[in-house]
Nucleic acid binder design. Structure first.
Lengths: 162, 162
DNA sequence: AACGAAATCACCCGAAAGTATGAATCCGAA
DNA sequence: TTCGGATTCATACTTTCGGGTGATTTCGTT
């Protein structure tokens, strides 16, 4: 902020200026009134000065409090966000050979795990339904399971598929 | 921090103080000049008041700046940190309600995912096969799938089950 | 007490899945 | 070239799954 802008900003705060003027006027009236009644003439200047000092010191403090910008402190908090394990690791080659699944059987297994029906898999692989059944039966034997759901469960558990 | 930076920082942080000081000096000069030419004794009170006002307003501001602790405004910025999921987090409650699965339906879903047949599930839950079929049918409707394998795939993908 | 959601069970039917057996073709290794 | 595994397909059969409908009971809420 430049000095020009500071000055402009100060004067743009009209309410403060108004308040300032009104306060001053009222004070002068009060002083005049007091002068006529109670205060002794030979101390009027000191009293006047003291009152002015107090008032304008207070005004200055009030202005400063209003104008000073709060210091901004930025705190960076690390927030843990759990994400799916990104599956970048490949399928378990060791377990792969252990069950002796053929390439085609593994392919069928993956499609079964994706939730496809045998007919869907047949269409996808351009083979007959019977072929898919044969493959699935054989891979069930090799995995020692009795249904496609068990096969998927075991295959995922052993990371044969992701 | 170097001396240059310190001084620069001081001036930048106390622009308002500087402004008041400069204004005061200029005003005094002006008054001296005016006193020598036009204004004399008959305006001394107003001038004195103005000068006092400026001085003590400046004093007030200076005091405030010196004594008042700057308000610290704390801004918290959350930074997301990706971590591998270790499977310890519970099922997704938000998605849970989205599908409106009942307690029993979720139970059946979990057993289906474990690879059990409907008959197995019936035995495990001590209910009839028909009951399991009803539950599974209803949960398939709610999950908008057509088979147990698809249900398992979707449920695991959405963390409805682990 | 009335209500609605949840849970339970039954029966029927068609579709899908799985088993068993046999067979043809292809392809890489011995 | 021969052999065996892999792949393909077929037919027949059994089991399981899933949809549809209807009914009863339980239980918490109003």
């Amino acid at each position: 902020m430049t000095m020009i802008q500071t000055v402009a900003g100060f004067f743009s705060k009209n309410r403060q200026i108004m308040l300032y003027g009104v306060s001053l006027a009222m004070l002068l009236f009060l002083l005049k009134w007091l002068e006529l009644r109670f205060l002794v003439i030979n101390h009027i200047v000191e009293i006047y000065t003291g009152v002015l000092a107090l008032i304008f010191t207070g005004l200055g403090i009030w202005l400063a409090v209003k104008l000073i910008k709060p210091e901004v402190k930025t705190v960076i908090v690390e927030k843990e966000v759990r994400v799916m394990s990104d599956g970048n690791f490949s399928v378990n080659e060791a377990e792969m050979s252990r069950f002796g699944l053929s390439k085609r059987e593994l392919e069928v297994l993956e499609l079964i795990a994706a939730g496809l029906s045998n007919q869907d898999i047949a269409s996808r692989l351009f083979v007959s339904l019977n072929t898919v059944k044969t493959h699935s039966s054989r891979l069930f034997e090799k995995l020692e399971v009795k249904s496609r759901t068990q096969a998927v469960e075991k295959a995922k558990r052993l990371s044969l598929i992701r």
